[in-house]
Design a protein around this nucleic acid. Sequence first.
DNA 1: CGCGACGTTGATTTGCCTCAACGATTGTGG
DNA 2: CCACAATCGTTGAGGCAAATCAACGTCGCG
Lengths: 191, 191
Amino acid sequence: MQSLIAHIQKHSPLTPDEAALFLVHTETRKYKSKSVLQHAGTVCTETYFITSGLVRSFYINDNIVEHILHFACEGWWISDMYSLFSGKPGDLFIETLEDTEVIVLSKAQQELLYQQLPQLERYFRILAENSLVAHQERLMDNMSRSAEERFEKFCKRYPSLIQRVPQKQIASYIGVTPEFFSKMKGKMLRK
Amino acid sequence: MQSLIAHIQKHSPLTPDEAALFLVHTETRKYKSKSVLQHAGTVCTETYFITSGLVRSFYINDNIVEHILHFACEGWWISDMYSLFSGKPGDLFIETLEDTEVIVLSKAQQELLYQQLPQLERYFRILAENSLVAHQERLMDNMSRSAEERFEKFCKRYPSLIQRVPQKQIASYIGVTPEFFSKMKGKMLRK
DNA sequence: CGCGACGTTGATTTGCCTCAACGATTGTGG
DNA sequence: CCACAATCGTTGAGGCAAATCAACGTCGCG
């Protein structure tokens, strides 16, 4: 709870009363590891703020191969934004990788809150902008850097994840097969 | 001018007075084709709304290869968002591909406007969210689809651009070399 | 006219994938 | 608490999509 309020206040002012009002519109939930919060093909109506644990979003293409879009751990939001904004069925799965506690903000409550606390527009604007910049960088990295370079960047940016998530999922995030990732890692260690 | 106001009103209400106030904080500029609006290594302080013409943003990696991040034509915003938000020197070039007219919104004026017209927070939040969703899709496409599929998607999404931009830049956008793109296109036409 | 950017085509190379087999680890039901 | 299955990581052989390098024709433009 406090971590979310602190996170908002980092980007947009919020009085204690307003923080309380915000929290009234949310719900806290706990999930076991490997719970599915959002299923591809359904309409996503919620956004999740992780207070503890670890979650991933991914989609499965024609060939039955998983591609990981995001990891989210403590202090991160996660959702299927395409489905959430458009109201159409999405392509993403969202699944816990550890026992996880989340604060749930439904789309309906979020719309209400935008009216009652207009400064939330600012907060979520800044979040979207930061996320956009991160995606642009990742996109450019995928186009111009080798798998090795992408892995090195991943290690620098998310050092804590390396021990927490199975290796094949890191492979999926950086965009290679588990087999190739294993060989690549072996080669990198030998130096 | 009107196209920008109409664009804002599509996402967030704006009275005629407010529209006028907005425009006071902007500036209109005309550029010849191949003008450089933003240079990698410098800090980006402006955002551009294209009223006519065509612009691209791209970066150049170690190997002296250009990678196109975006095309923007009439009705689109373009900027180096990383540099703009962080205040640090960016990696992007922004350059016109045709004679182009833009409405310039400087970062300083934008901050002022957020205070005077808080509903702009909403407008730019929605823009950022939409752009974010588009980037996520493009990222997933780059990881899981072949160059042919990416080109087909490009044709569907930006049919008007195909005649307007040199082929090698389309190749760069979808993430292949000009040589490979040429061969691929030949093969696709033969069916 | 001549130069430089563009598009094409061919030969060769390479980064990464596919498929398959095998040990190690995890976890789960009896 | 053990046995067995399932998942995970590793390794090897072979294949393919796309890159690289090089040569050449075309066109727009100063």
